[in-house]
Structures are given as C-alpha cells and as structure tokens.
C-alpha cells in the first residue's frame, strides 16, 4: 500500500510541472496585463514597472527565473498588492477557506449521505421522494441564489444571524457554511442513492437479508461500503471545487478567504498570484485524489486483491 501511495505522490511531480508550465505561458498569452488600467500610463512609467517586475525579459528567461525561485520556495510578490508576497496572501486566505470548506463538507456529507441512504432503502416511496425532492431543490439553488436568500430570511427579516463576516460576531459562520454545503449535499444525496441501489440489489445483500439481518444492519455492515463508491470518486474533485467555489460564498458574505484571491487574481492578471493559487490547487487535487482512491480501495476490498 505505502508503495502505491509513494508512486502516486511521485506521479504528482510531473503533474505539477506541467500545470506550472502551462499556466505560466497561458496567463502571459491572455490579453491584458497586470498594469493595464482605466488610465493608461505614460510609456516611461510602464517601462519602469516592467523593469521592476522583470516583465521586460524574454518570456523563457522569466520562466526559468520563476522556476528557480519556486524551487527555493519563493512565489514572488503579488502584482496587485505590491507590499504583499504571494505566500503571505495565500497564508491569510487558506485557514479561513479551509475552515469554511470543512464545515461545508461536513454538512454536505452528513445531510447528503443520510438522505441518500434513507431514500435508497425504500425506493419509490414517500421516504424516497421527500429527501430526493429536497436534494433536487438544493441543486436548483446555486450558491449565488441560496446565499442572498438565506441572508434575506435569517439576516434581514428574522434578524437571527449576521449578514456578513467570518468569526467576527456569533453565528456568522452558519449561513456561509450552509450555503456552500447545500449544493454538494444535494449531489451527494443523489449519488449515494444511486450507488446504494446498485449495491442493495446485489446477491450478498440478498443473502444477508435472507439470513435475517435487519435492514439497518445490512446497510451499515455491508451496503454502505460499496454504495458510497460514486460519492468517494466525486469527493476528491468536490473538495477542490469547494475551495474554488467558495469564491461566490466569500463574496456574498464578505469573508476574507482564498476563493476571492483565486478569482480576483485571474481578473487582475496578477501573474504571480495566479501561479501561486494554481500550484496550491494542483497540490490539493493531487492529494485529494490520492486520498479518495485509497478510500475507494479501503471500502472495496476486492480492489486490493489484483496486482
């Protein structure tokens, strides 16, 4: 097992290198530079700026320089925020967004798996339709819609919860977490139900039932492991999606997280910041997918036999 994990981590190196290289050239090829603004600058000022940020060197040299700095752990200064390094910007955003994503993931998994399992145990009954309808409603309510709605109801009409912030006043973490988690809860509910139905129809479940095991026993002892396979496959990218998707929620709720940096960097053509966030994201994706795959093996012992 550890050998496989090591191999996977090693595979991450070329992945990272390709992502870094492609992103480096893509952002420079995109129209508009970091210093383009409403007011165009006198040529002498532009020249000064380009010199300051090494943008007047040939692109290949810039690339080699960048890689060199990267190896030393230097992500460079942000173009948009001249007195901050990319490392610092990421460091301020990461804990907040990770916390937000964590709560959202917990909400999504708890609600999603629970309602998916409940629905699958008795397909095509009220017990199926009710949670599934809720799930579908959740899918229809993307964050940019659900967020303002929740704020309106709980923040403005009922005045129960703050309309913005993250850890500044009591209860201000609830609405953002629910907003971000609900769409994923809906996905997970649907996928769980589908996965569970596949498993519940299989022979070993029928056998277990025939032996007189109770349904909850069957579900928890046998079915859940296999039935969650699609969810596990989905969860790797989903968690990465939580991080990038948190942009919408962070904007609505005025949360100083990484999502805003990630999206703003692209809009601002903040080259170094785009690189920094992209590298972080690719590391996450590589790691999360490794975790998801290990989890899949753990849940389905058959995957272990071959090789």
């Amino acid at each position: 097992m550890s050998k496989i994990i090591l191999a996977r981590i090693l595979q991450g190196i070329p992945v990272l290198l390709i992502v870094v290289t492609a992103t480096f050239f893509l952002v420079r090829a995109a129209p508009g530079g970091p210093f383009d603004a409403e007011r165009s600058l006198p040529a002498e000022v532009v020249k000064n700026l380009e010199k300051r940020y090494n943008l007047d060197a040939p692109v290949l040299d810039q690339y080699v320089d960048y890689l060199g700095n990267l190896v030393r752990g230097d992500f460079g200064p942000s173009f948009r925020y001249p007195n901050r390094s990319v490392t610092e910007l990421i460091a301020t955003g990461v804990p907040i967004t990770f916390e937000l994503a964590f709560y959202a993931a917990v909400i999504a998994l708890l609600i999603g798996v629970a309602s998916g399992v409940i629905a699958s145990v008795r397909p095509n009954s009220l017990q199926d339709y009710l949670p599934m309808s809720l799930a579908m409603t959740g899918i229809c309510l993307p964050a940019f819609l659900l967020g303002p709605m929740l704020v309106l109801i709980f923040g403005i009409w009922l005045e129960w919860l703050p309309v913005s912030g993250w850890g500044y006043s009591p209860g201000d973490k609830i609405l953002p977490s629910v907003t971000l988690g609900s769409a994923y809860a809906a996905y997970i509910a649907r996928l769980t139900r589908a996965g569970m139905l596949e498993v519940l129809l299989q022979d070993f479940i029928r056998t277990a039932r025939a032996k007189g095991l109770s349904m909850p026993g069957v579900v928890f002892r046998h079915a859940l492991r296999g039935g969650l396979a699609p969810v596990v496959a989905f969860s790797g990218p989903a968690v990465a999606g939580l991080l990038t998707g948190s942009f919408v929620v962070e904007t609505i709720f005025q949360i100083p997280g990484l999502g805003r940096f990630y999206v703003q960097a692209a809009f601002n053509r903040d080259y170094t910041m785009i690189m920094g966030t992209t590298i972080l994201l690719s590391c996450l994706i590589v790691m999360l997918n490794i975790v998801a795959d290990i989890f899949a093996v753990w849940m389905n012992p058959r995957l272990r036999q071959a090789k």
């Binding site: 629970a114 145990v121 008795r122 519940l200 349904m215």
Partner: peptide, 10 residues
C-alpha cells in the same frame, strides 16, 4: 425490501 426502516433516525 426494507420493511424495517429506521424512521427515527431521520
């Protein structure tokens, strides 16, 4: 199938 579902859990 699933005659005994745990309604309470929900």
């Amino acid at each position: 199938m699933g005659a005994v579902i745990n309604r309470k859990r929900r």
